[in-house]
Design a protein around this nucleic acid. Sequence first.
RNA 1: GCCCGAGUGGCGGAACUGGUAUACGCGCACGACUUAAAAUCGUGUCUCGCAAGGGAUGUGGGUUCGAUUCCCACCUCGGGCACCA
Length: 943
Amino acid sequence: MHKYDHKKIEKKWQNIWEKKGVYHADDKSKKPKYYTLIEFPYPSGDGLHVGHPRPYIGMDVISRKRRMQGYNVLYPIGWDAFGLPTENYAIKTGKDPRVVTKKNTDTFRKQIKSLGVSFDWSREINTTDPKYYKWTQWIFLQFYKKGLAYKAKMTINWCPKDKIGLANEEVINGCCERCGTPVEKREKEQWMLGITKYAERLDKDLDTVDYLPQIKIGQRNWIGKSVGAEIEFKISSTNESIKVFTTRPDTIFGATFIALAPEVAKKITGKDFGIKVDTDRENKEKIGIDTGLKAKNPASGEQIPVFVVNYVSADYGTGAIMGVPAHDERDFEFAKKYNLPIIDVVIPIRVDNTNPHISGKKIVERKAVQAIIRNPKNGKILCLNWKAHPWTTFVVGGVEKGEDILEAARREVLEETGYKNIKFIRVLGGQVRSEFFAAHKDENRVAYFNAILFELENEDRIEVSREEIEKHEVVWKDPKDIRSDTMQCGELDIWLERLKNENAVNAENGILTNSGKFNGMDSENAKKEIIKFVGVEEKTTFKLRDWIFSRQRYWGEPIPIIHCSKCGMVPVPEKDLPVELPKVKNYQPTDSGESPLANISKWVNVKCPKCKGGALRETDTMPNWAGSSWYYLRYTDPKNKNAFADKKNLKYWTPVDWYNGGNEHTTLHLLYSRFWHKFLYDLKLVPTSEPYMKRTSHGMILGEGGVKMSKSVGNVINPNEIVKIYGADTMRVYEMFMGPFDQSVAWSDEAIIGPRRFLEKVWKLGELVEKNSVRVGARLRVKRRDFSLPDSTIAKLLNKTIKKVSEDIEAMHFNTAISAMMILATEMQKSESVSEKDFKMFLQILAPFAPHITEDLWQTLGEKKSIDLSVWPKWDENLIQDEEVTIIVQVNGKVRGQFKASVDISEAEAKSKAENLPEVRKWITTGVKRFVFIPRKLINIVV
RNA sequence: GCCCGAGUGGCGGAACUGGUAUACGCGCACGACUUAAAAUCGUGUCUCGCAAGGGAUGUGGGUUCGAUUCCCACCUCGGGCACCA
């Protein structure tokens, strides 16, 4: 046999696979189907870099394994080719984006093909192909017909110098990326898609799919479902009212003002107050202006002021909120600034589990106070060590009749500690209800605590009574020793939070107070009852906003609408689809910010499809998201001229069984395509309500040193260079081995040699197996030195490895799968003799990672059919069971020894064995306190 | 600011449901083979200590017989935040 020559064998097998079409998915098959999907790439001018193929290889491993498991696999690829970078390139160079895209996709295709990914290239699609975007436009028309595509005035970023609408990305520090001119906001009519109509289902149906938990959380947070109520506040002296949305109707008695979004205020008052909601991401200071209006709190009957503020968004809820400063941090900040009343209406509850109520004892309710005294000189806190009980507490005591909490606190401090001069700092928020057993009084206590922070002014003390001295000792404690495990205080977490953060408020549910007839009710019930009381119903709101769907750009799908002065907006008839992008001379938008399409009068001026009169085409185009919202459907029938895909094909192939993509796409793209899919499902055009059964994510590959790969940084690594030097198989194994698939990893030119050495080792093993075997007819037989008897070490390890690789692939733990195979290869090499049968099984489990070298060795060893058509090996459960295990012996958690024992050794036997180990014996002379035995694993002796 | 994820040797990383921390790979050192080098193979490689032992998984604390793993607080980095894809 010859040297491992990757260039030769990789080219050879790629040609054979392509000629035989082994990776073409079959639309009709008796096998069960499996649809694997990767996010189709945007063919940028930078070309493919080594980060692109990582997900393709990952899903290729899954796809190849599925084929060997007997599935008919669809693993397609295409190009998501509309978008800004190509357009900006066209603006700069004047080159036709079609030409640029063609060139880029050709490069990408050639690069990807050299990696031996088992894509079905016969189904390749391109979103910029009129035959494809015909159907993107067709789907848009369905949205339009159902009223889900509509026009609305929206604010956009506008560069007054370039006269162009800017993407958020193109705005750097409020200035245009190109010319540095400060960006203005401009109102513009935009096409919208009514995704909010699907918000509820997009949230709920997540229960039916298998997405990674953080992806589901991301989707849910984005949708932002919250249940609450819309409550009307009547404006005094007019007949009008303000509707607020709140998730906390139980706090309505604490509503001391109304806060309006600027747009809403303008609507109500007709005045512009000059306040804008900050779209900046940093938290800005809250600003408000009193409108002079008063509104009536429908629960308390109070007249409360109405403010315009910069922290309420018109897009969310009703654009108006009731300000409840006691129970919302933002409202609290605002109320403090504008001196608005803060009324506590919900008391949080804590139950002291270390000191719980004892049944049978009487329950006593009491108002009480915690005095927290800080010595400003050293930061220490005044505490009491109780003599009859194992407690440390703050200075604590009941509030007597006729006393306020401040008086009570000062009195307790004086009585219990003698300190005369303490300075009041602040009350730590509202009351807290604390339940505990008061052992010193032998009663169950329900205390309504306030806490007050003081500072010690000086050490002057009066003498403390004998009675108090017998009860407790006065101590100053370090703040780090004020913890829930050192202090007897069930509600301590609340005080610590409020000590740290002056703006901390109680946002928890609890027991109502200051709330008229609802006093004493818990929040959950109060929410329902108060909604009834003010005469409204529960209302669900979403953060999700409708989708701005139009762009004033050239390189996107034209929106297929015609504006007729007589008939209004008229959809382009289906027979006239696609509305093709005309060629233009200049890709720069018009002076008024319209798409460059607006300059082509020949294209713009059309006959109205209805009245045949003069009409104008819509010149807006669709965003890049459009084509990628349904591409997985087109793959099932990519050449269909009569429908976006044939129903039979859709029924057979969809839903996608496993979709893997970047972390950066797990909210927007995923949500948008789920929305389109659900819409199509409602039109009975697709057979399932969810497009993807399973969704996983991969991490990026960064340049050396951990920075993003980009042409501008100059750290782009071209996979073709790697393929040339090391081969596609090495590249594939390395990309799967370099780190956990779902996390970002930095590329290393040095480390890739490891996978190469591994494959060379495999090649040599192949030589060894071939040399030790003799051909009998078409079969290879082992001639000599075959140690792989059923109980041999190699056979055992092989079976364990088959199990591990099989399972790791499913979990996308490709790196550990490869590690296991490296160990197996090293052991095989050490044994110097491996049976043909065992070696072939090893080739099979390696094949998804390194398809070329394994195919070559497989057929060299006499197989006639592709290794891809072989059956994925099964492991033998009997062979992976160990009879003997190593048991670790720890003393006080430190490893002191170990011994071998049979797996079913009894605890008593293990104990005597462990205790008799000389290296253990010297540690346990003081006597064994406790003995922990974990079968098959470990013993811990506590002395 | 908000949401999600991650911090372990010189480097990439491993450790299943809380049970020997550092598997596997890179690098480095030494040895074998070689006239020599490369390649290959073998041995070693967290750290302090002569040793007995001790200390290390971003930082501080907690729970536990036992914590990289669970809980709390904090720090740093990456991703997303609606016109980048």
